[in-house]
Write a protein that binds this DNA or RNA. Structure first.
Lengths: 133, 133
DNA sequence: CGGTATCCTCCTCGATACTG
DNA sequence: CAGTATCGAGGAGGATACCG
């Protein structure tokens, strides 16, 4: 954990016009979601998944949210949905190049969370202590 | 946009035990939120902000959500809240080292969104077209 | 200025049932 | 297997009013 150069790349983003900002924020809002992040992680690991496999891997998700989240991902061009005309039906989901790019971006957040969850736990405990006093 | 080596670091995360997974997911769920990301971005740029300044910068946020989000950030040890005992009251918010780490992690997502928002817009248009047919 | 407290409204999300 | 449809509870979040 280097203590110097805390100015990181965020500051180097050129000031974009407000219209683009709105779009970017909307995308962040859509994409920065628990199920979205989880599904992208699963699809990154497995490369290719059937609906039922995603339902199994993505523990706790309801069928409704799974369908809904996958549709949003498909709509945004982050995953492809391939239907095989067989009985019983078979549908495969796979990340696109765009989706893989997002996966990489998310990776940093996952790594941060894994590296710091204990620090956060401690911070919460401290905060709870102070509240009691 | 290199097309090779799509195996990125996400795959190198060692299989953590389920208990840690739950914690990490909970943190992601708390932190992957529009206002949280926006506030962290603002605090990264400005270094130090008063409540009212954050309210101004964080366009569209209600006072309730601002307070609520700031409290969550403070609780998780991501920002510090400094109260100056003066009239009128003055309260300053500042990122901690932990918060700066998250800011760096988020940076990748912002950059991805800025780099790809047009691609996503196009994907949405294509998707809408297909639905009509 | 920097909040809290209260009320009220969506709208997300889960549960359940049904279909190609 | 992979969905869609419908209903209903609960929480997120805005508006307003008040406080130290």
């Amino acid at each position: 954990m280097a203590e110097g150069s805390l100015q990181h790349e965020l500051n180097s983003i050129p000031p974009t016009d407000p219209a683009v900002d709105k779009l970017v924020e909307e995308i962040i809002g859509r994409v920065a979601d628990k199920w979205t992040m989880l599904l992208i992680e699963i699809l990154t690991e497995k490369k290719c998944c059937r609906f039922s496999e995603l339902a199994r891997e993505c523990e706790g998700i309801s069928q409704k949210m799974l369908t809904q989240t996958l549709r949003a991902l498909e709509r945004d061009g982050l995953v492809t949905r391939t239907v095989y005309p067989v009985v019983p039906p078979k549908v495969e989901y796979r990340l696109t190049e765009l989706g893989l790019g997002l996966s990489k971006a998310f990776c940093g957040v996952w790594l941060w969370a894994e590296a710091n969850f204990d620090t956060i736990e401690k911070a919460r405990a401290d905060y709870a202590c102070k509240q009691e006093g």
